[in-house]
Amino acid sequence: MLIRICGETCLRDELLIQELIAGREEAFTALYEHYGHRLFKAAWDILGRGEDAEDAVQDVFVSLVRARPALAEVRNLNAYLFAALRRAALKRMEQRKDMQHLALESLEHELPAAQAKIASAEEERLHGALRSLPLEQREALVLKIDGGLTFEELAAALDISANTAASRYRYALEKLRTALATRESNANG
């Protein structure tokens, strides 16, 4: 059976989950086509390296295959996938054993090929500022904005309370704003 995802009208998450549980390859292809780009983008912003982002996305899909029986309990596939991505990203970081070196100054030097794909200087500054945030704030922003998670879903993904998730997100935005202003003033002056 060929499955196409074209927004909420074409195929509901429930149907896709059933197909995933049944282990149909077409369902995984459809899932990648729908979520692959967003997951990669989020992984890239969390991990800072293209190859690590690719590995994290692959880990998410492989873990999805392994967790098929438990998928019946999933009510929000989007939130589930981004929570799985966050776990995969942290695991990838632990494997590299260089979490401390993921501070963004170092990452900016490691991404020439990926950064070349970013359109404007303004966007480059935005990505640079985002990467300068600590991991906790960066993942809160990425999961909320790229993953489209609610504060409750963000809290579940980060294993914190909803209030803490909301305040962390807000604080991350403020830090990002400050970092952007600093970068703009550096660029101008």
Binding site: F40, K41, A114, Q115, K117, L126, L130, L141
Partner: peptide, 11 residues
């Protein structure tokens, strides 16, 4: 601004 930002597409 963050929501509208571009990003690298996977190969």
């Amino acid at each position: 601004l963050l929501a509208a930002r571009g990003g690298p597409a996977p190969d």
